[in-house]
Design a binder for these strands. Structure first.
Length: 822
RNA sequence: GCCGGGAUGGUGGAAUUGGUAGACACACGGGACUUAAAAUCCCGAGGACGGAAUCGUCCGUGCGGGUUCGACUCCCGCUCCCGGCACCA
């Protein structure tokens, strides 16, 4: 056979056509398909119109895993789709005067072509776009179920407002006080908005983190921080001259007897009430409402307060305690009020000092004493000056105090979470309409199932003003589903994180039109075995998706046994793609266009480089010379074909050389297989494939035995390359005479007998320092090894005149001689 | 401040989890082929010292200690970098 030059463009087009025609990438739902199943998912893209290198990296990782699993005999589900609702479409529309729908669908077409050029093995028959009514219909359906269950509700709340985006944001979408999307500071606003009660699942979301052994621990830690569980007590203080109570949450009930003042947030109802006829207080509250949003400013912000002019009553002693308003108390956490114990809390201490409030010590360290002159004692200890609780240890005292309060109806144990409910309304057009009609008589009425979906009018072109939906008469006017009276449709749309929270389940039955997901399909495919995406979604998408999966389970779409309690069993968080040490961005002008790379080198080179240049979870520095190196490697492998039939001149390799080659082939199989099964260190896997190709290139097959070994090596190499560079491998496979495409060949398995060696290299150390190497028989024992070693001059010279006190022997690996001067 | 993760040649990165540090690649230098270049192929390479040379010795995985026959790996104490959380009561 004559091998011409490796021409990436030609063979990539050839094999992409072949795969598509043969339907090789389709996941099978056939009931009689008894292959084990594997669900491999990459985070679907927003159709911005242009594929960037971050996408390429993400999808090459997923594709390598999916293809490997197919070669291992799995029935693989590897779908793709479009996270198609969102702000960029609307902004583009404003700019170009084009409806977002048109822009989005055009972008999808363009990006689909780009993805196909990469030769990714997606089951395109399952493609979904979240802006399609057949998709968001079920999200609307789900929302009405949540309304029925009280898990979706409308509330007046202080919310995060982003002016440039002209919409509210969920807490998770505020990063450092700024909008996650446009990075401008958010402002606080009071608005009536829709929420989904994620806090009802706080405990399960936290507990189930323990089930996610296949997730990176830092993501688990980030979610744990975000949920922020703290255990303590809720305590009700009476209010002098009023019959309502002041409710607070504390993690230190043991310090209750040291309370010397109370502090409430500026937004607390009590503060507002007291300000009604106190202009000075009212102006202070006004001042507090302009809280800075930047972290740095928060940190340096002066702690300020003012007495409300009302006293609380200590639940145990009946003592009167002044109530203050303080700018550091957050309305959004706990009940917006705290009990202050300056002796045992740094912040309370500083505040008490500033306003000359009393400091009363009630805890002392278990041993020694504490000087309250300069700082508070925040540790645990033994109670003092605490009346009936004197002498108890903190833990114990906390329990006793809670019991005491409980028996008198003044408090109870409580667990408090940092997590807030998920704000899902957005004042934007290009999103899924919230399926609600507001009726003057009946209030907010969910749309009945038979009227779903509430279709988003797709021919609108926003102009940048207020919500286009609100101005769309045909959309707004509707009859109340309950009483039939004329009413108004809700004109807010869903947060786009709603769509991405359940798409992984929809892929199991993407065309199902009788339910959100098909139960049988969920049983077959869910949960996702391997999920791959950027770590930037650690507490956004990945938290919402976990929550939504549990919601789907709890509305009865599937059981724990059918679909699992968690959507993603294993998670791989890949690093960013950098250029010149910085994230690629148009504004920095350091972008690399995947299309240009494919034009120049082919998709296989692009794939190979992105997998080889760095371990998956680390950032990858784009390096043009490295891309060329990857390309050169493919050329070198290609040329290895030449030697297959022509053979080589010169003496035939001897038996040992053939055995060495087979050892290299089979140890590489073991290494690469290990990489796929543990941790996906593809950079190392590819390095070992390069090593193997170097060995093959040094080997001169020129008799029957050596040719057979060479062919065996080539065939194994090509199969192992298939998940990384599938077009290249298929073409090579064809030239090697494979009966089908390399991508459907069985994965090679390491032959244990080829891994056995008669002779092993033993490292010889003296005093732990390497002095020589010696080849010894495989089963050589300590004494024999020692006698071999001592014959070596390089060893003998360190041992002579000395006394051997110890010999450490690691069979097949190392011999260490410990000596002492005699 | 709290919680994670990290630091290895000129560069990206390896090292079976305590057993040959620097695999593989990039960049670099030298050579071959060529009228020349590109492409390709071969050789070299952590640092220092000694030697004409095969080679030998010492040092070397952010810094300082420790455990061990033996430490990039484990323990203690630092420095710096990256990520997350943070008036959270």
């Amino acid at each position: 056979m004559v091998s011409d030059r490796y021409d990436a463009q030609t063979i990539e087009a050839k094999w992409q056509r072949y795969w598509a025609e043969a339907g090789l990438d389709r996941a099978s739902d056939a009931p009689d398909d008894d292959r084990p199943r594997y669900y491999c998912l990459v985070m679907f893209p927003y159709p911005s119109g242009n594929l960037h290198m971050g996408h390429v990296r993400n999808y090459c990782l997923g594709d390598a895993i999916a293809r490997y699993k197919r070669m291992r005999g799995f029935n693989v589900l590897h779908p793709i789709g479009w996270d198609a609702f969102g702000l960029p479409a609307e902004n583009a529309a404003i700019k170009n005067g084009q409806p977002p729908a048109k822009w989005t669908y055009a972008n999808i077409d363009q990006m689909r072509r780009q993805l196909k050029r990469l030769g990714l093995s997606y089951d395109w028959t399952r493609e979904i776009a979240t802006c399609h009514p057949d998709y968001y219909r079920w999200e609307q359906w789900m929302f009405t179920r949540l309304m029925e269950k009280g898990l979706a509700y409308q509330a007046d709340a202080e919310v995060n407002w982003c002016e440039p985006c002209h919409t509210v944001l969920a807490n998770e979408q505020v990063v450092d006080g700024c909008c996650w999307r446009c990075d401008t500071p958010v402002v606080r606003k009071n608005l009536k908005q829709w929420f989904v009660r994620i806090t009802a699942y706080a405990e399960e979301l936290l507990d189930d983190l323990g089930k996610l052994s296949g997730w990176p621990s830092r993501v688990i830690e980030m979610q744990r921080n975000w949920i922020g569980r703290s255990v303590g007590a809720e305590i009700r203080f009476g209010l002098e001259g009023r019959n309502d109570d002041l409710e607070i949450f504390t993690t230190r009930p043991d310090t209750l007897m040291g309370v010397t003042y109370m502090a409430v947030a500026a937004g607390h109802p009590l503060a507002r009430t007291m300000a009604a006829n106190n202009p000075e207080l009212a102006s202070f509250l006004e001042e507090c409402s302009h809280v800075p949003t930047r972290e740095a400013e928060l940190e340096t912000m002066e702690k300020k307060g003012m007495p409300l002019g009302i006293d609380a009553i200590h639940p145990v002693t009946g003592e009167r305690i002044p109530v203050w308003v303080a700018n550091f108390v957050l309305m959004g956490y706990g009940s917006g009020a705290v009990m202050s114990v300056p002796a045992h809390d740094e912040r309370d201490f500083a505040f008490a000092r500033k306003y000359d409030l009393p400091i009363r010590q009630v805890i002392r360290p278990a041993t020694g004493s504490w000087d309250l002159e300069s700082s508070a004692y925040t540790g645990e200890g033994v109670l003092m000056d605490s009346g009936p609780f004197d002498g108890l240890a903190s833990q114990d005292a906390g329990e006793k105090i809670i019991e005491w309060l409980e028996s008198r109806g003044k408090g109870q144990r409580r667990v408090q979470y940092r997590l807030r409910d998920w704000l899902v309304s957005r004042q934007r057009y290009w999103g899924a309409p919230i399926p609600v009609i507001h009726c003057e008589q009946c209030g907010a009425v969910p749309i009945p199932d038979e009227q779903l979906p509430v279709r988003l009018p797709e021919d609108l072109t926003p102009t940048g003003g207020a919500s286009p939906l609100a101005e769309c008469e045909g959309f707004v006017h509707a009859d109340c589903p309950k009483c039939g009276a004329p009413a108004r449709r809700e004109t807010d749309t869903f947060d786009t994180f709603m769509e991405s929270s359940w798409y992984m389940n929809r892929y199991t039955s993407p065309r199902c039109d009788t339910a959100m997901v098909d139960r049988e399909a969920m049983r077959r495919w869910a949960p996702v075995d391997q999920y791959i995406g950027g770590v930037e979604h650690a507490v956004l998408h990945l938290l919402y998706a976990r929550f939504y999966h549990k919601l789907m389970r709890d509305v009865g779409l599937f059981t724990s046994e059918e679909g699992g309690d968690e959507p993603f069993t294993n998670l791989l968080t890949q690093g960013m793609v950098l250029k010149d040490g910085a994230k690629m961005s148009k504004s920095k002008g350091n972008t690399v266009d995947p299309n240009a790379i494919i034009d120049r080198f082919g998709a296989d080179t692009a794939r190979l480089f992105t997998l080889f240049a760095a371990p998956p979870e680390k950032d990858l520095e784009w390096h043009d010379a490295g891309v060329e190196g990857a390309h050169r490697f493919l050329h070198r492998v290609w040329r290895l074909l030449d030697r297959l039939d022509h053979g080589a001149e010169g003496p035939a390799p001897d038996e040992d050389e053939v055995r060495e080659l087979r050892y290299a082939v089979h140890s590489t199989i073991a290494k690469v297989t290990h990489a796929f099964e543990h941790g996906f260190a593809f950079n190392v896997a590819i390095a070992s494939l390069m090593e193997l190709s170097n060995k093959l290139s040094d080997f001169m097959p020129c008799d029957e035995r050596s040719r057979a070994a060479y062919r065996e090596g080539m065939e194994a190499l090509v199969r192992m390359l298939a998940p990384f560079v599938p077009h290249f491998a298929c073409e090579m496979g064809e030239r090697l005479g494979f009966s089908g495409p390399a991508v459907v060949e069985p994965w090679p398995s390491a032959d244990a007998s080829a891994l056995e060696r008669n002779e092993v290299n033993l490292v010889v150390q003296v005093q732990g320092k390497k002095r020589a190497e010696v080849s010894v028989p495989k089963d050589c024992d300590r004494e024999t090894a020692l006698s071999y070693a001592l014959k070596l001059p390089a060893v003998a010279k360190w041992v002579e005149d000395k006394q051997i006190v110890k010999v450490i022997f690691v069979p097949g690996r190392l011999l260490n001689i410990v000596v002492r001067p005699s």
